[in-house]
Structure formats: C-alpha cells, structure tokens
C-alpha cells in the first residue's frame, strides 16, 4: 500500500477479480464428482438413446448420431453455463446473502457480475468439451473435419459466455419461489428449439417452428459447429452464427449486469 493518493489503496481490481473467480473454481473443484455427473447425465442419455438405441432398432438413419453430437456440445455449453450462473445467484440474493463478502471486495460491482458470467461460461465450456470423449465412447467413431476445430472452439467460448450472461439475467430477475416455474417454462423449450437434434435449414416446411428456433441462441452454436465439423450436413453460414452469438452475449450481458447491480445495491 504505497500508492500516492487516497483513492488508490489496496490491490488492483484484477487481483480481486482473480480472487473471486478462484473461489468459484475452488468450490467447483471440491464438488467435482457432483458437477461432472450433473453435466454428463442428460446429454449422455440423449446421445445413447437417439444415437445408439434408435439407430440399432432402425428408427433413425446411421448418420443421425453424427448430426446430434455437435448439437449436444452446443446444448451443454449453453445450459451448463446458464445453470452455473443462475441457480446460485437466485439463492444468494434471496436467502443466504453469501455473495455479500464478494460484493465487498475491492472490485466494482459490475466486475463481480462479469466474474459470474466468466465462471458460468468456464463451467459451460468444460461441460461441452467432456462431451467429445463421451461421444467417442458411445458412438464408437466420430467423423469430424479437424480443420474446423479452431472455429468450433470460438463458437463454444461465445456460446458459453452467452449462456453465462443468460444465467445472470435469470438469476437476478427471478425470485426463488418462481425458479422452478421459470426452469420448466424456459429451459425445456430452449432444450428442444436449439436445432440440437435437427438441422435448422431443413425446417422449411415447419416455418413457424423455424422462426422460434431462430430466436434460440443455441441454434447458432449447433449450426456453427455443424458447419465447421460436419459440413456435409446443411447448416447456416458461419458469419450468421458468429454475429448472432456476439449479439446474444451483448444483449444478455447488458441486461444481466444491470440486473445484478440493481440487486447488489439498495
């Protein structure tokens, strides 16, 4: 503490930010088993039933699993991030107030909100990446164009960040009494309108459903990943996906950070 002015006391905000992020990561590390099972259960069964069981019974074509896997990566990136951000915030702000000590860290309140997004996104990204080995194990072989991996990584990062930001919106706007209803009314539709289980462009005969899918950010992760990894499946142009995800990050981020500041300060 040798700074010259009264306002420059204490550590830089960067160190405080890393401290707060470090705490969240350490806590995840302690409950890693729970985290990993929570992350893997749903996509594993989706992949197993739709990719393996229905394939063996002859109800879906053999190529379907290759279409599904990128979608499940997209789904996990977004959902795991939403849950990691939203659920603890709803509880923290309403009951336990456990976040207060972090709100009193020498860190601007907005940056605490950004930390929540970044942490949620890092969980989302992790949840998405572990689907790759699971895919190999369940499907036996995965037919990906490896040159698409860098762009896929970018899409997953953006998709996770959009999920973290959307989680911040839910976490700061929803009261704990309503969180179950919100999850039922928001999460379930998101699950099935993200073009995870089907290619977006082939919905032309179901136009109304295609419009709904266009509003779901997961669509742009799924479609972008297919474009990069399995280009033979019809997919949206890469730049559409990129712009849509950047927009989703911006819109959810702005609303979420504003909501967070409103909840954190009286």
């Amino acid at each position: 503490m040798s700074a010259p002015t009264a306002t420059r006391v204490g550590p830089g905000q960067g160190r405080a930010f890393l401290g707060v992020l470090g705490r969240d990561i350490a806590v995840t590390g302690k409950e890693f088993g729970t985290f990993i099972s929570q992350v893997l259960m749903q996509p594993f069964f989706l992949l197993f039933v739709f990719g393996v069981v229905l394939g063996q019974l002859g109800y879906v074509t053999p190529g379907y699993a290759q279409l599904l896997l990128p979608g499940l990566l997209a789904l996990n990136a977004f959902f795991v991030a939403v849950q990691a951000t939203a659920i603890p915030l709803v509880i923290d702000f309403s009951y336990t107030k456990e976040i207060e000590d972090r709100l009193l860290a020498p860190l601007s309140t907005r940056l605490v909100a950004v930390e929540k997004i970044v942490f949620g996104a890092s969980r989302g990204l992790f949840g998405s990446l572990v689907m790759i080995p699971v895919g190999y194990l369940v499907l036996g072989n995965v037919d990906w164009q490896l040159s698409g991996l860098p762009f896929s990584a970018l899409l997953l990062v953006l998709g996770s960040l959009a999920g973290g930001a959307a989680g911040l919106v839910i976490g700061t706007l929803v009261s704990p009494r309503k969180i179950n209803v919100v999850f039922a009314l928001v999460i379930t539709p998101l699950l099935f309108t993200g073009s995870t289980q089907f290619p977006f462009l082939q919905l032309e005969n179901l136009r109304w459903f295609q419009v709904i899918c266009a509003l779901n950010p997961i669509t742009y992760i799924s479609e972008g990943l297919r474009g990069a990894l399995t280009p033979s499946v019809p997919h949206l142009a890469w730049w559409v996906c990129l712009l849509a995800l950047i927009a989703a990050c911006g819109i959810f981020g702005a609303i979420g950070i504003q909501g967070f500041v409103r909840r954190a300060l009286d």
């Binding site: 204490g10 550590p11 830089g12 160190r15 405080a16 401290g19 707060v20 470090g22 705490r23 350490a26 000590d101 972090r102 860290a105 020498p106 860190l107």
Partner: peptide, 8 residues
C-alpha cells in the same frame, strides 16, 4: 483465506 484473496 478467500476473503484475504479477494483483498489481494
């Protein structure tokens, strides 16, 4: 310990 980390 984590409180101390937040405060650098």
């Amino acid at each position: 310990v984590w409180h101390a980390a937040y405060h650098g």
